[in-house]
């Protein structure tokens, strides 16, 4: 497609793509913030939720935090490679990151399957409703990030549009940060 000249201008000094990603993240902060804010208020009101929260698997959550942190490392290394014009290396790191996303989702599905079998479904109580809604919304972001990353990677390997590695990286780190907060909120605070 013909790229408009508008896209190449940079009056702020920040490249257009990166500036847009920052705004995407800004808008996501309030979306997650609204949900988690509501959760925190309810959680403070209902002491009884700690009994429900005791049924979450801290280990699974911790493993997933570790997986996401590691994938974050991979994507930043990919960004570093892309910055130095090494598309092949960036491609490998992008796919390592996607692999991290897969492991995250697999652990999550095993975890959820177990919980659902034990009867901890969304309708059991509001805690579980929030648990599945918040983690589900986050998982959707993980999936979206993986899809975008996969699409980008095929340009990256041809050394095309290398700046996009940084853009998806920033988004992926944000998804990571959301999980960093979800983990104590849903798993640790018991």
């Amino acid at each position: 497609m013909h790229q408009p000249i508008a896209t190449t201008r940079s009056a702020t000094g920040i490249p257009t793509g990166r500036l847009a990603v920052w705004w995407v993240i800004a808008s996501e902060i309030v979306i997650f913030g609204g949900l988690l804010g509501s959760y925190v208020m309810y959680r403070l009101l209902h002491d009884a939720w700690s009994i429900e929260a005791a049924n979450t698997h801290t280990l699974a959550g911790a493993t997933n935090t570790f997986v996401l942190l590691t994938s974050s490392l991979f994507v930043v290394l990919g960004h570093h490679a892309a910055e130095h014009g090494d598309g092949k290396k960036a491609f490998r790191y992008l796919w390592l990151t996607i692999l991290g996303g897969f492991i995250f989702l697999i652990i999550k599905s095993i975890e959820w399957t177990g919980e659902i079998h034990h009867g901890f479904v969304m309708t059991k109580s509001l805690f579980w409703a929030f648990y599945y809604t918040a983690a589900g919304l986050h998982a959707l972001h993980v999936i979206a990030g993986m899809v975008i990353m996969a699409i980008i990677s095929f340009d990256t390997i041809k050394n095309k549009n290398l700046h996009r590695v940084e853009l998806i990286g920033i988004y992926w780190h944000f998804v990571d940060i959301v999980w960093i907060f979800l983990f104590p909120l849903l798993y640790i605070a018991k």
Binding site: W22, W23, I25, A26, S27, I29, V30, G33, G34, L36, G37, V40, M41
Partner: peptide, 14 residues
């Protein structure tokens, strides 16, 4: 500042 501002929005709401 933008991102912190957005976090403050959440605090304002809460």
């Amino acid at each position: 500042y933008l991102l912190i501002g957005m976090v403050l929005m959440v605090f304002l709401f809460v």
